[in-house]
């Protein structure tokens, strides 16, 4: 008779349920309709089952996105949870697709599911990775662009976890500013 350790019987629950989304532009569909929910999960095991199953970001076709947001939050500015918020933006150069992109994206996912932003984790809505010819981007989206302390703490934790060199700064942009500046860069409300 085999005894199974309790660890093997019970999955490890996450603080939040998360939804993974995939975006691929299609000419006859609206932008919003091109965002597709892949799956939701609320345990560590189910996170890995999903992550291990899907293409890494670096292998996606140019123009595609992955997003991972708390369940009930759509990966778009217009969602009521996002519209007053903004994002920490990591811009990658073309070389970094093969060296950093997958690592960075995975680390961001682990930060989120692990609630690594301490009490500021509630401000986190989700994250997006954009695979683009001119350079890939990763954004960590937060709910309220006026919560200075939370935004700065989230940015600091993010920068340390991604091992971004001290002299390289990353910026936080409010979505309302980004909306107004299509094609060029929105101003940074904060940098770390």
């Amino acid at each position: 008779q085999k005894t199974v350790a309790p660890d093997m019987l019970i999955k490890h629950p996450l603080q939040n349920t998360w939804t993974l989304w995939f975006f691929k532009i299609e000419s006859n569909r609206s932008w919003e309709d091109c965002q597709v929910e892949i799956a939701s999960f609320n345990t560590v095991e189910d996170f890995w089952a999903l992550y291990n199953h899907i293409e890494p970001a670096s292998r996606l076709k140019v123009g595609c996105d992955y997003s991972m947001f708390k369940q009930g939050i759509k990966p778009m500015w217009e969602d009521e949870h996002n519209c007053r918020g903004g994002r920490w933006l990591i811009n990658l150069n073309k070389q970094q697709r093969s060296t950093e992109l997958d690592n960075f994206w995975m680390e961001v996912l682990l930060l989120m599911i692990g609630e690594s932003f301490e009490e500021h984790s509630d401000e986190v809505c989700g994250a997006v990775v954009n695979v683009r010819g001119k350079g890939d981007k990763i954004g960590v989206w937060t709910a309220d662009a006026k919560k200075n302390d939370s935004i700065l703490k989230i940015g600091q934790v993010l920068k340390v976890r991604l091992n971004i060199p001290r002299q390289v700064s990353i910026g936080f942009q409010a979505h309302t500013d980004t909306m107004l500046k299509s094609g060029s860069t929105a101003k940074n409300r904060f940098t770390v």
Partner: peptide, 18 residues
């Protein structure tokens, strides 16, 4: 209230567990 927090090393250890 309480919050469920997972450290990075623990999450990575779980990656290939059955």
């Amino acid at each position: 209230g309480t919050r469920i927090i997972y450290e990075r090393t623990f999450l990575l250890q779980m990656r290939n567990s059955p």
